[in-house]
């Protein structure tokens, strides 16, 4: 059944749950040892517009999961739902459960800050604060009591793991807005790393940078994989093929299919995913 009908369904039931997931959940290959994120029948609305319907999935720890799908299919919404950034958007509603590192907000056992401390996020458009590079890296640690030497250590470590240290270590006190867009994006990654999250959400991290910076961000992501669970939205199919361990394919607010890289690029996957991944085109 096409996802469009799910939306009308949701409307008819007065925003009640749409029927259980229509996504054919196929986790192929060896079962991942641990799950970082678990979504069960997760749906989301902006006003009356159902943008995610009945997403059920698990995201494995310590792997790179790429979220692909046509524009407007709800990829960003799903990503932003993970660390509850959408909660402050007016008229946003959600239903179903979404637990992160075992923390489930709906069960009221854990707090929003607790959850967000586990999750770092880098947005599609780099957004640096009009302060020095150093202050930007430390921005998420404001309000913590940290000694000066410790701060310097954190700055160096974060910038090094974001592959930016060599370019900026001589100008840490300059305004971050003087950096190039690709550098700003990596600075945002460094800023997210400085608060030591377990999960890193990246919304099209290479979309607003040139191919070379894009490549350096890519290799950075591959390096970070050893310490973080990475979930990343991308429009670049080739990039997905290069770096993804798992792939989730969204269309019209539904999770059509998810599976390992090999599976999704093989002949076994569904018609829709194959069409999209082969030709970056789909009619669903």
């Amino acid at each position: 059944m096409p996802a469009v009908n799910l939306k009308t369904l949701a409307k008819e039931f007065n925003y009640a749950m749409p029927q259980t997931s229509k996504s054919y959940l196929k986790l192929v290959g060896e079962k991942p040892a641990e799950t970082a994120i678990k979504a069960e029948n997760f749906s989301a609305w902006f006003g009356e517009n159902c943008v995610l319907s009945g997403v059920t999935t698990q995201i494995a720890k310590g792997r790179i999961t790429c979220i692909v799908g046509p524009s407007g299919s709800g990829k960003s919404t799903f990503l932003r739902s993970i660390n509850r950034i959408n909660d402050s958007v007016p008229r946003y509603k959600m239903h179903g459960s979404l637990s992160v590192e075992g923390l489930d907000l709906d069960k009221k056992t854990s707090s929003l800050t607790q959850l967000r401390a586990q999750v770092g996020m880098v947005f599609q458009k780099p957004c640096v604060f009009p302060r020095s590079i150093k202050e930007n890296v430390l921005f998420g640690l404001r309000g913590h009591k940290i000694s000066r030497t410790e701060k310097d250590q954190i700055v160096e470590q974060s910038l090094k793991s974001a592959a930016l240290w060599n370019e900026v270590h001589l100008r840490l006190d300059q305004s971050a807005t003087t950096l190039s867009l690709g550098q700003q994006q990596r600075l945002c990654i460094a800023r997210a790393l400085a608060v030591k999250p377990k999960i890193l959400l990246l919304d099209e991290p290479t979309a607003s940078v040139d191919p070379v910076s894009g490549r350096s961000i890519e290799s950075l992501i591959l390096k970070l994989k050893h310490d973080y669970t990475i979930i990343m939205v991308t429009h670049d199919i080739r990039q997905t093929k290069r770096i993804a361990d798992d792939i989730m394919f969204f269309c019209s607010g539904a999770l059509i299919e998810c599976g390992t890289n090999e599976f999704m690029f093989s002949k076994e996957c569904s018609e829709q995913s194959r069409l999209y991944l082969d030709e970056a085109f789909c009619e669903c």
Partner: peptide, 10 residues
């Protein structure tokens, strides 16, 4: 986005 980046930092 500035506020959202703040929330995302915890």
């Amino acid at each position: 986005t500035y506020r959202e980046n703040g929330y995302a930092l915890g």
